[in-house]
Design a binder for these strands. Sequence first.
DNA 1: ATGAAAGCGCTAACAG
DNA 2: CTGTTAGCGCTTTCAT
Lengths: 337, 337
Amino acid sequence: MATIDDVAKLAGVSIATVSRVFNNSPLVSEKARQKVLKAAEELGYKPSMPARSLAMKKTNTIGLIVPDISNLYYAEVVRGIEDVCNIYKYNITLCNADNKREKEFQYIEMLKNRWVDGIIFHCDYFSKEHYEIFENGNIKVVLAGRTTKFDVPYVGIDNFKAAYDAVKYLISLGHKKIGIIHGPLDEMKETIDSVDRLRGYKQALIDNGLPIYDKFIKEANFKYKGGYNAAMEMLKGEMRPTAIFAISDIMAMGAINAVFDSGLSCPEDVSVMGFDNIDLAEATRPSLTTVSQPMYEIGAVAARMLIKMLNGEEIDEYQIILKHKIVVRNSCISPKK
Amino acid sequence: MATIDDVAKLAGVSIATVSRVFNNSPLVSEKARQKVLKAAEELGYKPSMPARSLAMKKTNTIGLIVPDISNLYYAEVVRGIEDVCNIYKYNITLCNADNKREKEFQYIEMLKNRWVDGIIFHCDYFSKEHYEIFENGNIKVVLAGRTTKFDVPYVGIDNFKAAYDAVKYLISLGHKKIGIIHGPLDEMKETIDSVDRLRGYKQALIDNGLPIYDKFIKEANFKYKGGYNAAMEMLKGEMRPTAIFAISDIMAMGAINAVFDSGLSCPEDVSVMGFDNIDLAEATRPSLTTVSQPMYEIGAVAARMLIKMLNGEEIDEYQIILKHKIVVRNSCISPKK
DNA sequence: ATGAAAGCGCTAACAG
DNA sequence: CTGTTAGCGCTTTCAT
């Protein structure tokens, strides 16, 4: 590969001039610029990023830590991130940490050693330990798809309110016995999706004078099978819900099939509501009424915010809550009298 | 951030010794090693990758170009890649090129300037132009999920045979009127998924003395809606297939719903077969009989191969065809008499 | 076993 | 406007 020296020699100028040309410095005569460009063209020269990074202490790279890229939700968020990074000429280093603390910390450390300019971080729960690592490491970070009480930039949604709205909608339809299938709760810490959504669910019931039944609250693992099994159990016996709110579309798909396999029909006997609004939500039968979460936008906004931070630009809002909305399709109707 | 100089000074040794310690050179006394380690610990020192990359002309980074990470298929492949890269301490730079040639070339150029050690490349069709760019740029590359006639390492599946086997299975069930929903054909170039699978479909019909009807061959865009529409058209009128082979599970899901919306039932009136075997294939009703493609493994094997190449290890097979298999579920049965 | 010193390819004062 | 030069943080001969 040709280096800056080769170009300088061929163009008959100093390496400083070559550097200037490639950094769009105005301090170069048009003549010199042309000579340099021609020589570079001839040699197929392009500046070496590693060398440039070392000299400028800036890599133009953003580290991306997600639990699992093969999860539809994160894949969509990452797509949003990548698109805006591409616009601003940033690159992405992708890391799958599986929500394991140890892996997360390891990756953060590694990204730091690689001098990434900043990190966009995803996890199920942002702990004090996380906070301290970023703080002490002096690492620029923005949390995506998650809120936190710590003083860290983030962009997410209001999970409490989203669940509250979902349940309120179900109640407005006339449902009084509403079940929920949530995910792992991890000691009920706030800002965990499952915990906040469960709280929203309960509050909506309370605010509408409805009782909370333990039997209608089931935990699953965010997978199809988990949603299926949880719904099956909920549907067993006399006392059963007329509506089930699963806090992910995938689990909701499991719930719909569980309704059918219980000899009931959806939505006639049991309404099912999802969360996320993945592409396939309209492909289920019945198509899924769900809480829409702006996944692509979460990624895009997070990336834009981080890049602004890196450029030292003014930022009006470091903690952004994006709007969710209820997408009404066919899986939820009023209960039979 | 502490540098190698800081450590050397604090440990009372030269930077060469510090370097040796961090590169596990045996040429260091135990005493010196301890001093260095202690000093490094104290300063929180870790070698800077950009500096190291520049000195060694090796970045320990692999470039990854995919059409679209938010596509379930690629997300799964990438997960496989990431997992093995992680084991071998390689990092991944992710690029979404949307199958656009211009974007692909741009990313390849950029990855080259970043001195990535190698590239794992995904695209719908590997052209001569691609070949030449990698060849002339002297870039180590392995194609994932795709075969090619060019002399480039790859790991993929035999799409012709996979489709052939799928249709053969349908025929063995007794079907004689079999439709196919394929993707874009792009001038019928070989090694494009759609083209090869369509060829496999036709050959299977021919080999079994079955006629090929144009009406039973529809193109769609690999999306749910596309599969739905294509199937709807195919099902219109008197002459309709008793089985539909969609070359992606997502399109197959569309086809299943189209069957229902045509007033028919699946699989009783029309069997539907998919391709890929994504997680959700078991969540459809009826659950989807499909051709399973080892997505995670394609990624993992490609990554392992590239890393071997980077290490200069001997490789027995540069062009690997992984096995597909028919996964029988409930969407395909024998046709009614 | 250890250190001095010359790069790796580029940027950024500084001087002219 | 241009060139010289001193780094950026690390690896790697080459002596010792």
